[in-house]
């Protein structure tokens, strides 16, 4: 049946799949587990401020893996990507302008 691939805008070009993409999902799972081990392990190594950077960079990578491989954000329409990006951008507005105040308070 051809409802298979009608998710994305370019779906018509994608051939219907007959089996589950077990291999690719297993790879993503392994990557996620490895990153989890890395972030948990690294936080026990004294890196100073760098601990925070490593932790949140890894979190961002994990989130990106979920977004790309499970939520198919890259495969869908531009409008979907704009919606996703807008959420992050607006969160950026909130953080950036509030911290202009918070960081400069008392100066």
């Amino acid at each position: 049946m051809s409802a298979t691939a009608s998710l994305g805008a370019r779906s018509a070009k994608v051939k219907p799949m007959r089996s589950l993409p077990l291999r690719s999902h297993l790879m993503v799972w392994l990557a996620l587990m490895a990153l989890l081990a890395l972030t948990a392990g690294s936080s026990f190594v004294p890196l100073g401020t760098f601990n925070v950077v490593v932790n949140f960079t890894i979190a961002a990578i994990k989130a990106a893996l979920v977004l790309v491989f499970f939520m198919h954000v890259a495969r869908g329409e531009a409008a979907v990507r704009i919606a996703a990006a807008a959420g992050l951008l607006w969160l950026g507005f909130l953080f950036a302008l509030s911290f202009v105040d918070i960081l400069a308070r008392g100066h």
């Binding site: 507005f93 202009v100 105040d101 960081l103 308070r105 008392g106 100066h107």
Partner: peptide, 22 residues
């Protein structure tokens, strides 16, 4: 319109620097 909210807070005790930006 999303980048101007701090003008409601000019006398609230927010930093003067933030006030300038807003």
């Amino acid at each position: 319109g999303f980048l101007v909210w701090g003008h409601h807070m000019f006398v609230s005790g927010q930093s003067v620097y933030a006030g300038l930006v807003f």
